[in-house]
Computed example of a mutant assay.
Amino acid sequence: MNQCTTVAILPPPEHVLALPAPGHRPEAGHVLCEVGEGHHGDHSAMLWDEGGRPGSAVWVRWDGESVRLLPLPWCPDRDPRNADDACGLFAGHPSGHGWEVTDPTEEAVTWDLALWHPHLFR
């Protein structure tokens, strides 16, 4: 399944706005939902992980009205084809596991590169 392509533009948090030199306001950034397309509920993207401990990954979750930062535990499931590969999404995520979700942008770039540089894709 393809990855959800919903994007959110997030303003910098208030504590970040207090850090830069005067006249150098940080710009808003964007996040792309990492869950499989057609999911129900909030869109979600991981912002950072503080060491792989349970609840150490900080995710941004958003809907049409609100944005929240949440520490969420990792999904404990492993890819049945390769037990060394973990899901990469949060526990209780909607839709498929990380190994079942394909980033359509990455796939399009790979196809284009393969056309231009076939010797790199054997």
Score class of each variant (00 low, 15 high):
residue 79 D to R: 08
residue 76 P to W: 08
residue 102 T to F: 05
residue 58 V to T: 14
residue 58 V to G: 02
residue 27 E to H: 13
residue 27 E to G: 14
residue 82 N to T: 11
residue 63 D to F: 02
residue 50 E to W: 08
residue 25 R to P: 07
residue 102 T to G: 05
residue 52 G to Q: 03
residue 78 R to L: 12
residue 39 H to W: 01
residue 36 G to N: 00
residue 120 L to A: 11
residue 9 I to N: 09
residue 62 W to Y: 08
residue 115 L to V: 04
residue 75 C to H: 03
residue 14 E to M: 06
residue 106 E to G: 07
residue 57 A to Q: 01
residue 30 H to F: 10
residue 93 H to F: 04
residue 92 G to Q: 09
residue 4 C to F: 03
residue 6 T to S: 15
residue 61 R to K: 12
residue 81 R to Q: 14
residue 78 R to V: 11
residue 68 R to Q: 14
residue 9 I to S: 09
residue 10 L to F: 12
residue 52 G to D: 05
residue 34 E to C: 06
residue 118 P to L: 07
residue 100 E to W: 12
residue 53 R to A: 15
residue 120 L to W: 11
residue 120 L to R: 09
residue 32 L to C: 07
residue 5 T to K: 14
residue 60 V to S: 14
residue 81 R to M: 03
residue 7 V to N: 03
residue 75 C to I: 10
residue 119 H to N: 15
residue 13 P to H: 09
residue 1 M to R: 10
residue 27 E to L: 10
residue 104 P to G: 05
residue 118 P to F: 01
residue 62 W to F: 04
residue 32 L to A: 07
residue 84 D to S: 15
residue 80 P to Y: 03
residue 88 G to D: 00
residue 60 V to Q: 09
residue 43 H to W: 04
residue 4 C to D: 03
residue 82 N to Y: 13
residue 114 A to H: 08
residue 16 V to W: 15
residue 56 S to G: 06
residue 87 C to V: 08
residue 17 L to K: 12
residue 89 L to P: 02
residue 56 S to H: 01
residue 16 V to L: 15
residue 45 A to G: 07
residue 54 P to L: 03
residue 91 A to R: 02
residue 52 G to C: 02
residue 21 A to H: 10
residue 36 G to Q: 00
